[in-house]
Amino acid sequence: MGKPYYLIDFENVRPALDRLPPGQCHVLVFTGETTKRIDVDLAFALPRFGADIQRVAISGTGSNALDFHIAFYIGHIAAREPGASFVIVSKDTGFDPLIRHLKDKGIACRRIADIPAAAGTAPATKAPPVAKKSKAMTVVVLPEPNGAAAEPVNALADERASKIVRCLKKAKRPTKTSTLATFIGATFQPAKLDAAAIKAVIASLQKAGKVAIAGTKVTYKLG
C-alpha cells in the first residue's frame, strides 16, 4: 500500500500539519474559490512536504462545493491508484455517508476532525526550508526539494497535464523546456505552482506520450 492521502477541508478546519510525517503521506489542502489568505503556521509547515503537498482551489461557490471536490479527487485517485487510502480531515459529518459507500466498495477511507498528536513527525535531521511569502501572506512558494527530478507523477499532476494538453491545442506551442515550464505556470495562475509541481506536470505529459524532450527541445503529439 502506498502513502495515504490526507484531504484537508480548509474551510472547515485548520489542522496542525506538523503532526504529519513528511515523506510518508500525500496532503491535499482544499480551499474556497475566494480564499486569499492562509494561516502563518500552515504557511511554514508546507515546505516540509515538498512535492507531496498540493493546494486545490475549488471552482465555484456553494454550501457543498468543496465537499464535491474532495469526493471527486478521492474517486479520481482511487481509480488511478488501486489500494490507495484516504483520510478526510473535517468536522463535517456530511462526508460520513460517502465514507460508508467507499468502504462498501473496498476503498479505505475515514474522517477525522483534527490531526491527532499521535500521528507524530519524523525527527528532523536539518532545519526545514523557509516559506517565501508576500506581506499579506497571500502566496506560499514551495522550495524545490532535494531529488525533485525523480519525484513520482501523482494524480494531481496528471489532472493538471490534461488541462495543459487542452490549452496547448489552442495556443502556440513552446519549443523549449523553459518556455513550456513558463506556459504551465501561467496556465494555473494565480495558483503559483512551484518548480517541483511544474516538473511533475511535464513528467506526466511525457509519460502520456504527449510531449517528447531532447535536451531543451520539445516536440508534441497531442492527438
Rank of each mutant, 00 (worst) to 15 (best):
K132F: 09
K132D: 06
A136K: 12
M137R: 05
T138H: 09
T138A: 10
T138N: 13
V139A: 06
V139R: 10
V140Q: 02
V141L: 08
L142K: 05
L142M: 10
E144W: 00
E144Q: 07
P145G: 01
P145L: 00
P145R: 01
N146H: 03
N146Y: 02
N146C: 00
N146W: 00
G147V: 04
A149F: 08
A150D: 14
A150K: 14
E151W: 02
E151M: 08
E151Q: 15
P152H: 01
V153F: 01
N154Y: 01
N154F: 02
N154G: 10
A155L: 00
A155N: 06
L156H: 07
A157S: 12
A157H: 11
A157M: 07
D158C: 08
D158H: 05
D158R: 13
D158Q: 13
D158S: 09
E159C: 05
E159N: 12
E159I: 03
R160I: 04
R160D: 09
A161C: 03
A161D: 04
S162W: 01
K163M: 11
K163E: 15
K163Q: 15
K163T: 15
I164F: 05
I164P: 06
I164R: 04
V165P: 08
V165G: 07
V165F: 06
V165H: 05
R166P: 00
R166V: 10
C167V: 12
C167K: 14
C167Q: 15
K169F: 02
K169P: 02
K170A: 09
K170V: 04
A171D: 11
A171Y: 02
K172A: 12
R173W: 02
P174N: 04
P174D: 03
P174C: 04
P174M: 02
T175Y: 00
T175V: 11
T175P: 00
T175A: 14
T177D: 09
T177H: 05
S178A: 14
S178D: 12
S178E: 13
T179R: 11
L180D: 06
L180P: 10
L180S: 08
A181F: 09
A181V: 03
T182R: 12
T182L: 10
T182Q: 11
F183M: 08
I184M: 07
G185F: 01
A186M: 11
A186N: 15
A186K: 15
T187V: 09
F188R: 08
F188E: 06
F188Q: 04
F188Y: 07
P190D: 02
P190I: 01
A191W: 01
K192A: 12
D194G: 14
D194A: 13
D194K: 05
A196V: 03
A197D: 12
A197M: 05
I198A: 06
I198D: 06
K199I: 02
K199H: 10
K199F: 00
V201L: 04
V201A: 06
I202K: 12
A203E: 08
S204F: 01
L205Q: 07
Q206L: 13
Q206K: 15
Q206Y: 00
A208S: 13
A208G: 13
A208L: 04
A208R: 11
G209S: 08
G209I: 10
G209A: 11
K210I: 00
K210P: 02
A212Q: 14
I213G: 06
A214D: 14
G215F: 05
T216N: 15
T216Q: 14
T216G: 08
K217S: 13
V218C: 08
V218S: 08
V218K: 09
T219S: 15
